[in-house]
């Protein structure tokens, strides 16, 4: 399964995607991602272990992110490999989500500022 969900402190959810999010991989992450979109508030999508993604896989992430944000939450992308980042940048997804380089930055980005 190319998706693993980990609960961090302070209600933050880390979604770790791995391997090839191609046609088959997208089919596997689609349902879990939509559940996350509908139920979590602060989501970090760890892409460091992903070596391929195209529009189908991005679609799952964007739809989940849209749902999270509509519910007032935040989703950030963590540490995509260069080839994956090129796909993200080309599709314009980098204008929709913050891309964090390390986990500390990602946690800061999804943590609501006090007050």
């Amino acid at each position: 399964m190319p998706i693993f969900i980990e609960d961090l402190a302070n209600g933050i959810t880390k979604v770790v995607l791995t391997g090839r999010i191609d046609i088959a991989g997208s089919a596997e992450i689609d349902m879990p991602m939509s559940i996350i979109g509908g139920s979590r508030q602060a989501v970090i999508v760890d892409l460091s272990g992903v070596n391929f993604i195209a529009s189908l896989g991005l679609r799952s992430i964007v739809l989940a992110g849209k749902t999270v944000m509509r519910r007032g939450g935040t989703m950030v992308l963590l540490a995509p490999q260069p080839a994956v980042e090129e796909v993200i940048t080309t599709s314009g997804i980098d204008e929709l989500f913050v891309i964090s380089r390390d986990e500390a930055a990602a946690i800061a980005a999804v943590t609501p500022s006090p007050g």
């Binding site: 679609r59 944000m69 796909v87 080309t90 314009g92 997804i93 204008e95 929709l96």
Partner: peptide, 22 residues
């Protein structure tokens, strides 16, 4: 066009951009 906001992002329409880039 590249989506300018999350609400504009037609998640299904990303493919042609990618195809033409690569």
């Amino acid at each position: 066009a590249k989506p300018v906001s999350l609400e504009d992002a037609d998640a299904g329409g990303l493919g042609l951009n990618l195809l033409r880039h690569f």
